[in-house]
Design a protein around this nucleic acid. Sequence first.
DNA 1: AGAACATGATGCGCGGACGGTATCAGGCCA
DNA 2: TGGCCTGATACCGTCCGCGCATCATGTTCT
Lengths: 302, 302
Amino acid sequence: MFSFEQLRGFVAVAEELHFGRAAERLSMTQPPLSRQIQKLEREVGVRLFDRDNRGVALTPAGTAFLREATRLLALAEAAPDLARRIASGTVGTIRIGFTAASTFGVLTDVLDLVTAALPQVEIDLYEMVTREQVEALLAHEIDLALARPPFDPALFGSRLIRREELVVAVPAGHALTTLDRPVEVGDLAGEPLVMHSATKARYFYDLVVGLLPVEHHNVVHTVSQIATMTWLVASGRGLAFVPRSASLLGIAGVVHLPLVTREPKPVELHLLWPRDSANPALPLALETLRALDPDATPRGLT
Amino acid sequence: MFSFEQLRGFVAVAEELHFGRAAERLSMTQPPLSRQIQKLEREVGVRLFDRDNRGVALTPAGTAFLREATRLLALAEAAPDLARRIASGTVGTIRIGFTAASTFGVLTDVLDLVTAALPQVEIDLYEMVTREQVEALLAHEIDLALARPPFDPALFGSRLIRREELVVAVPAGHALTTLDRPVEVGDLAGEPLVMHSATKARYFYDLVVGLLPVEHHNVVHTVSQIATMTWLVASGRGLAFVPRSASLLGIAGVVHLPLVTREPKPVELHLLWPRDSANPALPLALETLRALDPDATPRGLT
DNA sequence: AGAACATGATGCGCGGACGGTATCAGGCCA
DNA sequence: TGGCCTGATACCGTCCGCGCATCATGTTCT
C-alpha cells in the first residue's frame, strides 16, 4: 500500500509538472521525490507520468489517480478535525428517551433549547416508558431521559425540569364539573377510578395512593399511559388523576378539574442521565438546559 | 499526518475491541500496535479508545473517526484498480470531433460500435470543421476525428470508413429533375453553382474542380458546410455537389440527382487520430471500429 | 559544432522510525 | 494472596527514506 507522503508527492508533481519545483514545495530535495513517485507507480501498477528529459505529463491513468489522491488527502485532512469536534461535543448526537404523554410541553422546550445552542448536535428521539428509559440509559442506548422519580443517585444524574399540578380528569357533563371550587379528595368517594399501574407507572401510583385510600372496588382499570387513561375517562369508564399538562393531549370529552393536594405541584418530571456517559455533547446539552424553569407554564396551557 | 498502517491498526482494534486479537489479525505483535494507536491519537488530537485493564471501547470521537478511516481505506483500496483500468483502456473517455453534416450516417455507427464493445468508455462529441479537427488532434483536445483527406501520415493515423457517391443537389422542380438518366457534367453548363470554400472545405473543392472547370461567373456562393449549401439550394440560389448522405439532412425542397463521375464513389470519410495519442482507450476503440464497412449504405438511405 | 544548462535518475551513507522480545502495571477471580 | 488477563513500556536491531553528490540525456545558445 502506498503512503500519504507518496500521495502528497504525486499531487505536487502533478500540479507542478516538474520534479524540482514539486520537491521544493514539499521542502525536500528532488531525488527522494523521484524515488517516491517510482515506488508509487510500482505499487499502483501503472505509469502515472510520462517523463522525458524536458518535462513531465500526466498519463490518463495518472489523471484519474490524481482525482482519487486529492479526495483521499482531503478526507484525511478533514477526519481529525471531525473527530476533535465530536470530542468537544459541539457536533454529535444526543439520544433522548421520553414517554409519550407525560412530557408534553417539556420536550419541545428541550428540543428548542438544544438545537438553538448546539445547532450541529443531532437529536434522536426514542419513545419508551420510564422503566425502559432506565434500562436504556444503563445500556447507553440513550443519553438522556425525561423521567419521574425515584432514581438511583449513584448511577444517574438528575435535575428537576417541570413541576405541575395533579388534576382530576372527568368526562364532560360529569356532576363534578358543576362544582364552583377545586375538587377535594372527599368529593370522590364512590367514584369509579382509572388507576395507574403499580409497576409500570409507579410514580403516579405512589402519588395517588399518598393522596387518598385506593379502594379496590372502585378501580375499574389499571393502565400505564396517561393517554390511554384519558381515553378511558373520555369514554365514561371513570375518573383519573393526571398531570395538568395532560390537557394538552386535546382529547375531546374530557374535562380537567383542579384538585386540592398537600403540595400545590406534586407531579415532577426530571432530566435523567447516566453518570458514566461518554457522550461529549451531553454536558453541553445539560448546561444549555439549565435555562429550563420547573415552574414555567407549558405552552398551550393558560 | 497519520499513515495508512495506523488507520488499518485503528480499524482492526475498533472491530476486535481487543489489542491482542487485532494485532494477530494484522500479523504483528501487540506492543507496536498499542504504540501505533497512541501515535494516531496524538496526531488526531483526540482519544479514540477508552481502555482499561479489561477491555477497549470506542469513544464517540473514535466512532466518528472509524467511519472516516473505513472510507479512506476503501478509497485507497479502489484507487489503484481504477488507475489500472484506465491504463488498460477499458474505462476512460474518447473525445471525437466531427463535422455536422458530412458525417451523417457514420457517426451513429461509430457510437453504436464503441458503446457496445467498450461500455465503460465515455464518449465526448465535439462538432468542428475539418481544420479545427486537425488542430484539436494535434493539441490532444480530441482523440479521434471523422475527417476527409489529405492528412500528414507522419502525424496522423487514418483509416477509410465511408465511401459514397457525389450527387447534385437541385431545387425541387428544376429542369434537371425531369432527366431520366444520371446527370453528366455537360448538363450543367451555365447553371449557377453553390461552391465549397477552397480553404475551409478543401476536400470537396478539389473534388469538384477535378470534375469540371469551375467558371467563376457561375459561382453564386462559397460556403464551407454541407448543410448551409443545401439550404441555399433549397432557396433556389443554385445547384451544389454534395455527398449522397446529405439527403439524410432531410431539408425540404431539395432533390439529389445521381451524377456520373470518374470514380463511382469519390467522396471519402476517414477516421483520423494522432499517432502520439496517449489515450489507452483509443487503440481499443480503433480495433472495434474495424467492423465498419466503407461501402455500407448509411441507415436511412436506400 | 560544441559548451553550458536543464531535465529526471541513480549511488551512497546516515539517522530515525518501526517492529519484535522481554517485562511491567493494574484489575479480576479463585 | 497468587495466578491470569488486560494494555503499556524498555530496549534493541533492522530497514526505510532522506540528503548529498553525481550521472545520463536532450535542448539551447554562441
